[in-house]
């Protein structure tokens, strides 16, 4: 029995001078896909960052794949994040100085995992990016850059994929395509998927929904 991919309890986060954001206790069994919905200011991005260990909760705990993030030192948390989490941002941020292939290999390199160029090529092929290995990010279309960022998030076979507003800049067709890929690839890696968005189009694709109140 695999532990829950995500489990939070009593989670709050207070920005300086603001009232605290409170998050419902929540658990995501391994392999499930969730949409985290809510209007602006409801703390969707904050929740993603708390799950990623990029922010430390004011109170409460976050467990990812059975590991409590509080128990880790900052360095351990960095490495844990690199190995267990695949993170996709709204702007699909690739390192401009590196080729597509090197952007992918950066993930295992920084997480101190063996680099597998064959896996990188395989991912690129699956995402329809075969032949672009040596391109630089500036020579990619927006859609291609998105898929490269997704491929990079998948490189280290993460337990959980966290996506923050991955579709808000996309038209309907592109949104469908991106969500399809996210769900399919998460399934292929046996990873759980958490998509934070205010975009209601997303809901149809994901089995579960967490609503955040402002």
């Amino acid at each position: 029995m695999r532990p829950d991919s995500v489990a939070t309890s009593q989670l709050t986060y207070r920005y300086a001078a603001n009232s605290a954001l409170r998050f419902p206790d929540w658990s995501v069994p391994a392999g499930q896909s969730w949409a985290v919905l809510g209007p602006s200011g409801s703390g969707k991005t904050t929740l993603i960052q708390l799950l990623a260990g990029l922010r430390t909760p004011t109170t409460g705990t976050v467990c990812i794949a059975g590991t409590g993030l509080r128990e880790l030192t900052e360095r351990q948390r960095d490495r844990f994040r690199g190995r267990q989490l695949g993170i996709v941002f709204q702007t699909f941020h690739l390192l401009p100085a590196l080729t597509v292939l090197d952007n992918l290999l950066l993930a295992p390199y920084l997480a101190h995992l063996p680099q597998e160029p064959r896996r990188a090529r395989e991912l690129l092929r699956r995402l329809g990016l075969a032949g672009l290995e040596r391109r630089y990010p500036h020579a990619l279309s927006q859609g291609q850059a998105q898929r490269v960022a997704l491929a990079r998030a998948l490189m280290n076979r993460p337990a959980v994929i966290l996506a923050d507003e991955p579709t808000s800049a996309l038209d309907d067709a592109a949104c469908e395509g991106m969500l399809g890929l996210l769900v399919d690839e998460a399934a292929a890696c046996e990873a759980s998927l958490v998509v934070a968005t205010h975009d209601r189009r997303v809901q149809r694709h994901l089995a579960h929904t967490l609503e955040l109140q402002p």
């Binding site: 360095r75 994040r81 993930a107």
Partner: peptide, 9 residues
């Protein structure tokens, strides 16, 4: 981004 990919401070 490098930090999110696991690089330490």
């Amino acid at each position: 981004i490098m930090r999110t990919l696991g690089a330490s401070r």
